[in-house]
């Protein structure tokens, strides 16, 4: 059985698609057969970040509607043959997604794949709900600023109460915090929440911190997941995250030691 990972946040523009692409690539590079699904129907982006936009023939909605088979719609990544991409439809909207349809596709993928990464759209409506509904693990992507943290908190509430695991009274979804676009310098100046601040508010296991980095934009524009840029700090940070998720013990990097207001008040953790 595959492990289904949802990459989610509530808020838009925090780095969900970048993270989905990077961790899917990271898992595949470690030799695990991985599929990454774009749930952002109508605002398709994952194919661009993965650099496969010119090879899209069929999409997620075609498969749900039975107009194409899963094998016809899955695109094999050109960097890693263990990685497959299921693109979203650009011409439809989220209403085209049905719970039964999504469930059937995930079940079929589960037979063949080790990991399935679901790239959630922003918001808490239908697309985001279906992206997280079947998940086993959740990567909650958060920026170190108050509105993103608040939205992540809201998403965590939904994960713990509206997922299939919650509805069927199974073991809850495992939740992990990914802090993206982190800048220790700006934390030091008091312009950004620190890791401790965010953890204090969310009380969530930190899987890793991805520093604000030019390499992320470059990677997006060139259509290669940033994790393949092994020299960049962001690429290394994602590699750490994948290793930690797979059970390796790696020390956290890219965090400044300076504590923010919450850290000072509570002495940190």
């Amino acid at each position: 059985m595959a492990r289904i990972i949802v990459v989610t946040s509530g808020k838009g523009g925090v780095g969900k698609t970048t993270t989905s692409a990077a961790i899917a690539m990271g898992l595949a590079k470690k030799g695990h057969k991985t599929a990454v699904i774009d749930f952002d129907v109508g605002l398709r982006n994952l194919d661009l970040i993965m650099g496969c936009e010119r090879r899209v023939v069929y999409d997620f909605i075609n498969v749900i509607n039975g107009e194409a088979t899963l094998n016809q719609a899955l695109i094999r990544d050109k960097h890693c043959n263990q990685l497959y991409i299921l693109p979203a439809s650009q011409t439809r909207d989220k209403d085209a997604l049905s719970q039964e349809g999504v469930g059937k596709i995930l079940e079929e993928l589960s037979k063949d794949f080790k990991y399935i990464v679901c790239d959630s759209p922003a918001g808490i409506e239908r697309g985001a709900h279906l992206a997280m509904y079947f998940a086993d693990d959740a990567f909650v992507v958060t920026n170190p600023e108050v509105s993103s943290v608040r939205d992540s908190d809201r998403m965590l509430g939904i994960l713990s109460s509206k997922s299939r695991r919650a509805e069927q009274n199974q073991e809850p979804i495992k939740e992990y915090l990914l802090l993206t676009r982190y800048s220790p310098e700006r934390v030091k100046l008091g312009e950004m929440l620190s890791v401790d601040d965010v953890q204090e508010i969310l009380s969530l296991h930190l899987l890793g911190v991805i520093p604000e980095s030019k390499s992320v934009l470059n990677a997006s524009n060139s259509g290669t997941p940033v994790i393949l840029d092994e020299k960049s700090d962001a690429g290394q940070a994602y590699a750490d995250i994948v290793a930690r998720y797979l059970g390796e013990d790696r020390p956290h990097r890219f965090i400044d030691e300076k504590k923010g207001i919450f850290g000072k008040l509570f002495g940190g953790k």
Binding site: R150, D153, R154, G157, I158, S161
Partner: peptide, 20 residues
């Protein structure tokens, strides 16, 4: 978590945080 509502007909005890 944020957005959640809990209603108790008697007393309510929360052993964790109550988010903004």
């Amino acid at each position: 978590r944020s957005g959640q509502r809990v209603y108790a007909k008697g007393d309510l005890i929360v052993l964790a945080q109550v988010s903004a």
